[in-house]
Structures are given as structure tokens and as C-alpha cells.
């Protein structure tokens, strides 16, 4: 049986529209994940043992269980808690809770990558800690976490495909809809894979560029 592409080319615009939802959900999850990551980082360094234990537990659970399960849990658990949240938001929440754990590690890595000597030099000049944070640490951390953040965004674009299972209409779900109409699953899946590939490959190139730029400043 040969592959016939003409059915799929009709559907291409429809599929491309799906990528909008894919990008939207991933972008929001990244932003929210960044906030979660910051909170988790603060929690890890907190004075309160309970808070530290909670964040460690959270990270262990998030990194030790499948994202797919986390998506299902958020989708089914939120109504049980009385919150009626639409699919898109539920997906964003699940993805950002997942990303947050990994992003907090990126932030931690970025903070550790700044040589302690630079902080010594700042203190020796009489700079107070708020100033040191604002002028020395923060600018460098932001530059350092940009490459891993773009990688995380790429990962989110791929993870968003799982949201098709809870009915969110992004690229993968649209692919399934096209298959429902045309019954040409091989062609549709190959095309869909190609669309994801283009997005992720382009982002990969961006990530590599960012890594190079970040490395230029480092001694």
C-alpha cells in the first residue's frame, strides 16, 4: 500500500492551526513553570524544615512519576477538589508543575555557576547584599538559565502532545481529527511528526546559539 499525500495537503492549514495551541500552552506553562521554579528554590533554602521537606518531596514526586500520570491526576483531581477548570488551563497547570521542578534545578545551577570570588569582590567594595543580588548575581543568572529554559520550552512543545488525551485541541488532537475524516493515519502522523520536528529543530538551533553567547562572557 502506497502513501498518498494529497489528502493530507488539504488538511495542512488545519494542522498548522493546531500548532498555535501547542505553542500557546507551552509558552504559558514555561512562564508559570518559571514562577513555580522560583518558589521551589526559595522553599529549598527556607529556614523552616517543614517547607524544605515539602519542596524536596514535591521534586522527588514530580521527577519520579510520569508526566502523563501527572496530567491525568491534575485533570481528574481538580474537579474532585471542587475546582472546575477547563482543559487548556488544566494542561497548563500540569505542565508547569512538572517544569517547575526542573526549572528550579536550572536556577540552582545558574546560581552555583557564578564564581564566589565575584561576590567577595562586591562585598569588599562595600556593596550590600540587596545590591549584590540586583547588580551582580541576577543579571548573570538570567543569562545562564536562558539556554536550559529554551530547552525546557522545546520539551514542553513535545509534552503538549500528551494533552490530546484530555481532549485539548492542539496539534496531535487535530491530527487525530484529520485521521477521523480522511482515514489516512500513516500520512497524517508522518506529517505531524514533521511539523513537530521543524519547531523543535529550529528551537534547538536557537538554544545552541544562546549557549554560545552565554559562554562568551564566562572566563
Amino acid at each position: 500500500m502506497t502513501l498518498e499525500w494529497k489528502h493530507v495537503t488539504h488538511a495542512l492549514p488545519f494542522l498548522l492551526e493546531g500548532t498555535l495551541a501547542t505553542v500557546a500552552v507551552s509558552l504559558l506553562a514555561l512562564g508559570l513553570g518559571l514562577l513555580v521554579g522560583i518558589f521551589v528554590m526559595l522553599g529549598r533554602r527556607s529556614r523552616f524544615k517543614a517547607l524544605r521537606a515539602l519542596t524536596v518531596a514535591y521534586m522527588s514526586i514530580v521527577r519520579g512519576t510520569p508526566l502523563f500520570i501527572q496530567i491525568l491526576i491534575v485533570y481528574y483531581a481538580l474537579p474532585a477538589l471542587g475546582l472546575d477548570i477547563p482543559r487548556f488551563e488544566s494542561g497548563v497547570i500540569a505542565l508547569s508543575l512538572n517544569s517547575g521542578a526542573y526549572i528550579s534545578e536550572m536556577i540552582r545551577g545558574g546560581l552555583m555557576a557564578i564564581p564566589k570570588g565575584q561576590l567577595d569582590a562586591a562585598k569588599a567594595c562595600g556593596m550590600r547584599s540587596g545590591l549584590i543580588w540586583r547588580r551582580i548575581t541576577l543579571p548573570q543568572v538570567l543569562v545562564l538559565i536562558l539556554p536550559p529554559l529554551t530547552m525546557e520550552f522545546t520539551g514542553l512543545l513535545k509534552s503538549s502532545a500528551l494533552l490530546s488525551v484530555i481532549g485539548l485541541v492542539e496539534l496531535t488532537r487535530r491530527a487525530q481529527q484529520v485521521i477521523g475524516e480522511t482515514l489516512r493515519s500513516p500520512e497524517v502522523w508522518l506529517t505531524t511528526a514533521a511539523l513537530y520536528f521543524v519547531m523543535c529543530f529550529a528551537l534547538g538551533a536557537v538554544t545552541r546559539r544562546l549557549e554560545k553567547s552565554a559562554a562568551e562572557y564566562r572566563l
Binding site: 564564581p115 570570588g117 565575584q118 567577595d120 569582590a121 562586591a122 562585598k123 569588599a124 567594595c125 562595600g126 556593596m127 550590600r128 551582580i136 543579571p139 548573570q140 543569562v143 562572557y217 564566562r218 572566563l219
Partner: peptide, 22 residues
């Protein structure tokens, strides 16, 4: 604040230079 004021009256040069790379 006082500690920082005192530090500002002394200049320090380090073995590993410690220039702010950004």
C-alpha cells in the same frame, strides 16, 4: 550598613581577580 561602610574604606585585590564578567 556600618560593615559595608568600613569595607568601602579598604580596597581589596584578589588572587583570581574576580572581575564581574557581565
Amino acid at each position: 550598613a556600618n560593615i559595608n561602610r568600613m569595607r568601602a574604606r579598604m580596597g581589596m585585590v584578589f588572587q583570581s581577580f574576580n572581575l564581574w564578567t557581565h
